[in-house]
């Protein structure tokens, strides 16, 4: 498979497994953080907006 001869070889990355996987892990965390914060903003907005709209329509 690809450049590596086995899965353990792939996971160890020579002697640099820790560094490679740590880097990709941090990248993944930051990607997920970005996706979630954008999603969260949207969700919060719609929850608040719906509540506000209902209140406004209730009083009219």
């Amino acid at each position: 498979m690809g450049y590596f001869s086995s899965v353990t070889d792939f996971l160890q990355m020579g002697t640099h497994g820790l560094y490679v996987w740590l880097s990709y892990g941090i990248a993944l965390v930051i990607f997920i953080y970005n996706i979630f914060s954008a999603y969260w903003l949207k969700r919060q907005y719609f929850i608040n907006a719906k509540r506000r709209l209902r209140r406004e329509q209730g009083t009219v």
């Binding site: 020579g14 640099h16 497994g17 560094y19 490679v20």
Partner: peptide, 11 residues
């Protein structure tokens, strides 16, 4: 640099 070079693909 061996496999640590693969960090280039994010860095």
């Amino acid at each position: 640099q061996g496999n640590s070079f693969r960090i280039i693909y994010i860095h």
